[in-house]
Nucleic acid binder design. Structure first.
Length: 575
DNA sequence: GCCGTTTTCGGCCCGACTGTTTTCAGTCG
């Protein structure tokens, strides 16, 4: 896997080029930054792309042209990159680590090196201990303190936070702001609003005519551990849960422009702003202004897009993956919405490792407007999860029959989360499998198999004729466990050939398939089941994470089986 | 260095905040 390393190399090249005093190379710097971003955020291995499609394949990636693709090729072929090596001779600094400290960029890092030979975080810490930073020209007492604090925060944070933790925290902050009586509107922006599976920080937008009081109010919130910076319209705070939060205050008439500005990723925003320029406008977070400086946008986000002749798209789509162009041509797809979801096909109960009973899960699902749920308790190989054997499942199905009698207005379906064993066989007898309305299967054990073996294992299960849904196909746990090594192209092809649906497990620890893999599966005409993998009633609310993940991959409702009525859904599964 | 409804040269988004300046560069998103 070359992505992480190459992304770091290009970021460092950008850092080092920005130090060139003889010529202005800021656009070159920008180009390397963009390439680093592209490669760093890809999940597909760039080495594989090069192996399959050569330099042409590399040049199809956004921000990668002739020069950078040649450097990638050189690095993959030889393990070295001359451009990087020669720059590094001049600047022997660990820019990647040092510039991660808030307030230190390439230039400050170079100053630290020139003055005190600081090359890495360890050197920096030693210099702070001896109070030597504040003596350097361009630094002072305050910056030394800030750097010291920044290093501590860096070391205590666990990197990007899963959306399942970040979103509820952001929602709680918005609620507090709304209850403060100081704001007109408060909204979540940034990657949290785009529902990225992990977020680096929180962005919150507030409209108020008392910005100063809002900023002060925020600094005193229980959730806030420390104020990083604070100006008249913007503040950054470090939250106790271990993530930074930017809060921006604008006037209410700027709400739409500001929300638009703080939602799209960088590339999306740059493109929209370029369109504005072409049409003779200037777009910023305060509004869209014509040549005479008049604000031509309304108070809502939609007015920005409509004024530019574009259709507004859901936040999940605003990542410059073609949505801008389609929006101009009024050809945006109608992607799946939470209200399209009619059932949940991955639900555990206290019959295996869940917390609530069948009827409790059904009642709760009904209260959320679901028309059906599938009970998918574990099978016997999952003994830590109290998996059931064939005899126990037969009794379990009687219990489901009784629950269907008890709870009216929702259909409870018989299923199981069947273990795919090491050889690809399933963990229950065929006769038991035939008693189910549908069958969900997944890999839980022996995760360290070779790619060839794992691919064969999963495909064997898919071809058994007894699998309807492949649950959390890659088996990864965010920030904890890597995806299993498996040839996804082959698995997706086999799933399509055998009418097996792929799950989008919306549990925020899993998000599996993720957005990028869903996009890939769509190329194989996959169908999807968006589910919660619930283990207690309240987990059934996590459907929004799965739906947003599907939205990020532009999934339309026609290919989501649980957006169908129960009859049509079951028919679809039986092929 | 990249890119193209401004197509192979000439642009490349835009603004806030901070610290140490002595009028603004550096950093960040």
């Amino acid at each position: 896997m070359y992505n992480a390393r190459l992304s770091e190399l290009f970021d460092e090249i950008a850092d080092m080029l920005s130090l060139d005093e003889k010529s202005d190379r800021r656009f070159e710097v920008l180009a390397y930054r963009k390439a680093a971003m592209t490669i760093g955020s890809m999940q597909e291995d760039i080495g594989e792309i090069y192996k399959k499609e050569g330099v042409d394949g590399l040049m199809r990636l956004p921000g990668i042209g002739k020069g950078i693709s040649a450097s990638i090729r050189e690095y993959i072929e030889t393990g070295r990159m001359r451009k990087y090596d020669s720059l590094k001779e001049k600047y022997p600094i660990d820019f990647n680590a040092i510039t991660r400290v808030p307030g230190i960029g390439a230039k400050q890092a170079f100053k630290l090196y020139k003055a005190l030979k600081i090359r890495n975080i360890e050197d920096l810490k030693k210099a702070i201990a001896k109070h030597r930073i504040s003596k350097i020209a361009g630094f002072g007492e305050k910056s030394e303190n800030e750097i010291s604090k920044g290093i501590m925060q860096l070391e205590s944070s666990k990197g990007r936070m899963p959306i399942g933790t970040a979103l509820p925290e952001a929602e709680a902050l918005v609620k507090r702001l709304n209850e403060s009586g100081l704001v007109e509107r408060a909204a979540i922006g940034g990657s949290t609003r785009r529902m990225k599976e992990t977020v680096g920080d929180l962005d919150i937008l507030v409209t108020s005519s008392h910005a100063d009081r809002v900023i002060k109010f925020i600094s005193k919130l229980d959730e806030v551990q420390d104020v990083t910076l604070s100006g008249p319209t913007k503040t950054t705070v470090w939250l106790k849960i271990g993530i930074s939060c930017d809060i921006r205050v604008v006037k209410d008439k700027s709400f739409g422009a500001a929300l638009q500005y703080f939602t799209g990723n960088k590339d999306h925003n740059v493109k929209v702003r370029q369109i504005a320029i072409k049409k003779g406008y200037k777009l910023n977070e305060y509004g869209m202004f014509d040549k005479k400086g008049r604000n031509v946008s309304g108070p809502e986000e939609e007015s920005i897009y409509s004024k530019l002749g574009m259709d507004i798209m859901d936040p999940e789509m605003r990542e410059d993956l073609g949505e801008v162009e389609l929006s101009i041509r009024h050809k945006l797809p109608r992607i799946v919405q939470i209200n399209d979801i009619k059932g949940d096909l991955h639900v555990h109960t206290d019959h295996s490792d869940g917390y609530n009973s069948i009827t409790e899960m059904a009642e709760y699902a009904k209260s959320l407007g679901r028309q059906y749920i599938g009970i998918t308790d574990h099978t016997k190989s999952e003994y830590v999860a109290h998996g059931m054997n064939d005899a126990q499942f037969r009794k379990h199905f009687d219990d489901i029959d009784r629950a269907n009698e008890l709870v009216k207005g929702i259909r409870i379906l018989k299923s199981a989360e069947i273990d795919i064993l090491k050889d690809g066989s399933l963990d229950l007898k065929d006769s038991t499998l035939e008693m189910m309305d549908y069958r969900l299967a997944s890999v839980h054990t022996s995760l360290a198999m070779s790619k060839v073996d794992m691919t064969r294992r999963v495909i064997t299960a898919i071809e058994s004729g007894y699998v309807d849904i492949l649950a959390h196909p890659t088996d990864r746990i965010i920030n904890t466990r890597n995806p299993i090594d498996m040839d996804l192209d082959k698995v997706f092809q086999s799933a399509h050939d055998n009418n097996v649906v792929l799950e989008v497990d919306g549990h925020p620890d899993r998000m599996d398939l993720n957005d990028e893999n869903i996009r890939k599966a769509k190329e194989y005409n996959a169908k999807f089941s968006i589910s919660t993998d619930s283990h207690r009633t309240t987990h059934l609310n996590m459907m929004r994470y799965g739906v947003s993940t599907a939205k990020r991959a532009w999934v339309t409702p026609e290919i989501v089986i649980n957006a169908m009525d129960v009859g049509r859904m079951l028919k679809e599964l039986s092929g």
